[in-house]
């Protein structure tokens, strides 16, 4: 059904014709913001990047992979995050860890040779974190993920292994 448009010509009331009321109303709002900002120091904006906004503990930001005390990643390349990922942004290539570099034995004999996340594809749903049986992949509270080139937005294993304090 098409929308029917009706033009109504309504005469102005005397208050509307007398503009001073509206001007005073507007000036009062300006005065309120001036007092709040200048005297009471109540700002709605912040001085980013010197000042950072507080986020919830449950905010899901940039990814990282947790490491143990030997700086070995906890990831065992089980492909569960890759399987569950709805955006298909994770690419894993598995391999065997050299036994000389593996004090944990069987526990960590399988390792990710490559672990790439395309953060431009990622929708930050957190399914990977939920699927991970080793608590290896996690989403940190970091939300500053702007980059100057497209290749910087593809996270590799070395970047993901950086030390981040996770949420919770």
């Amino acid at each position: 059904m098409a929308t029917k448009t009706v033009n109504v010509s309504r005469p102005y009331t005397w208050q509307e014709k007398f503009y001073l009321f509206a001007i005073v109303q507007g000036l009062l709002i300006t005065l309120k913001h001036f007092i709040n900002g200048f005297f009471l120091r109540k700002h709605n904006t912040i001085m980013y990047p010197e000042v950072k906004r507080e986020y919830s503990n449950r905010f899901r930001g940039s990814h990282f992979i947790s490491v143990d005390k030997n700086k070995t990643e906890n990831c065992t390349a089980c492909y569960l995050c890759q399987t569950v990922c709805p955006a298909e942004c994770i690419t894993i290539v598995a391999g065997e860890r050299e036994s000389s570099k593996n004090p944990d034995g069987v526990k960590k004999e399988k390792r990710p040779v490559r672990f790439d996340i395309d953060s431009l594809r990622c929708c930050f749903c957190g399914f990977c974190e939920e699927a991970c049986p080793k608590d290896a992949i996690k989403l940190s509270g970091k939300y500053e993920m702007a980059a100057t080139s497209r290749s910087d937005t593809k996270y590799d294993l070395i970047y993901l292994k950086r030390e981040v304090k996770g949420r919770g």
Partner: peptide, 11 residues
């Protein structure tokens, strides 16, 4: 039986 299904190829 160890719970290493993530590592195990048979999974």
């Amino acid at each position: 039986h160890p719970l290493d299904c993530p590592v195990c190829d048979k999974a």
